[in-house]
Amino acid sequence: MSESDKPGALQDLDARLRRLKAQEHPPERAGSPASRSGYGFAMRLGVEIVAALIVGAGIGILLDQWLGTGPWLLIAFFVLGAAAGMMNVYRVVRGIGGAVGYRAGGSGPDQGQRSGGPGGTKPAGRRPPDDDEDA
């Protein structure tokens, strides 16, 4: 790579930089650690469920204490929290990141990149592993 860099070759450097920049831009570039180890992905799914459950149960307990309605709101919100957790997992797996709502496509800057999210939110194994592991 770095052979032939005689000083004064700034023009050359400029040209090379421009060429590389042009190459770099095919839409799927960084930010898509597509098929990372399943560890991060599994971690993410687990965390999503647990987080929603914690929020649901927490709200249920607080409301119960406030309204004095026995265990009923806790039960209701626990179930709702579980549903929200499932929904989060579904979204992560579908690759629509942490988005609330269903937006199947279209909105946002571009759909392909948003799924380049953490922990390989893309359907795993779509691309051969590349070395952007440390992205």
Binding site: I59, L80, A84
Partner: peptide
Amino acid sequence: EILSYLSRPIS
């Protein structure tokens, strides 16, 4: 949806 939104800071 609201629970899902509220679970964001926790997750």
